[in-house]
């Protein structure tokens, strides 16, 4: 039972300035704080965004950096390109009962030359099917038999008398002035060489194909390596057509070079 009268306290008049000052806390500092404070969520989000941007930039730069000059070394191991070539070139040979081995041996050479003298006029397109028009030209049977009779193995008796050219060694042949754009566009480049029948007489009568490896060393220079192939033993000093093909067997560049066998 509270009978005491405290009306003057209960009805105390509060100056308006007190309330106005208290209410001013609600608006003024808040706008100032929003200028200098950055929500933690957005700050962390900014860090993540920066990290992703750096990663994307590094990936983009990596894709723009030019790769090394050395092309991947591929041993064709009678790959699709080579199979097409050997099949087409040996179709005629099989018909004549000649071995399908792409390697060139002196004993086979005798048989092939005899057959080719007969078949050269009938089927001049013994070049690779990948590029028939660019393939080695058919030999001239009128002039070949004389040389074959003197050099049944298809090798000149004195190769060193031929003009100077890149030497065929065990490491291969260095071919110059190969357009960089021609080879760098392809990830894998194969090569095969075919003796040029219109060049110096070499005793060859058939366009034997020699598979090889390609090592691009830059500045338009290519090393054609015969490592892994025995065909290098059968090469003679002569003009050769170097055909560079891609995986699909399409010729992307060709060059006729006189090479010297030492």
């Amino acid at each position: 039972m509270r009978k005491v009268n405290f009306d003057s306290i209960e009805n105390l008049e509060i100056p308006d300035s007190w309330v106005e000052k208290a209410l001013s806390l609600n608006s003024e500092p808040k706008q100032k704080k929003s200028i200098f404070t950055f929500p933690v969520f957005y700050r962390n989000l900014a860090y993540v965004a920066c990290f992703i941007a750096v990663c994307a930039l590094s990936v983009a730069l990596y894709s723009l950096i030019p790769r090394g000059d050395i092309l991947p070394i591929k041993h064709p191991d009678v790959s699709a390109t080579q199979n097409n070539i050997t099949e087409t070139t040996n179709n005629d040979e099989t018909q004549n009962g000649v071995s399908q081995k792409p390697t060139y041996t002196p004993s086979e050479n005798v048989k092939e030359t005899e057959d080719d003298t007969q078949n050269s006029t009938q089927d001049p397109t013994t070049a690779p099917t990948t590029k028939p028009t660019q393939a080695p030209k058919p030999t001239e049977p009128e002039t070949q038999p004389d040389d074959d009779s003197t050099k049944p193995n298809g090798q000149p008796s004195n190769p060193s008398v031929f003009p100077d050219g890149p030497d065929i060694t065990e490491s291969g042949v260095s071919i110059g002035f190969v357009p960089e754009s021609a080879l760098c566009g392809s990830s894998t480049v194969y090569c095969y060489i075919v003796p040029d029948r219109e060049g110096v007489m070499s005793g060859e009568t058939d366009p034997t194909i020699y598979p090889a490896n390609v090592i691009y060393v830059g500045d338009g220079n290519v090393i054609v390596s015969f490592e892994g192939y025995k065909s290098v033993d059968a090469l003679v000093s002569d003009y050769y057509n170097f055909y560079f093909t891609n995986v699909n067997g399409e010729i992307i560049f060709e060059e006729t070079v006189y090479v010297t066998v030492k």
């Binding site: 306290i9 209960e10 007190w18 309330v19 209410l23 806390l25 609600n26 608006s27």
Partner: peptide, 25 residues
């Protein structure tokens, strides 16, 4: 005015409701 809520009261409502109590104390 304010977005802060104190026991279902805004800051302004809290002041108006309890200003006399706080001032008396």
């Amino acid at each position: 005015m304010g977005d802060k809520i104190f026991a279902a009261l805004s800051y302004e409502e809290a002041i108006n409701q309890y200003k006399r109590t706080v001032a008396s104390v």
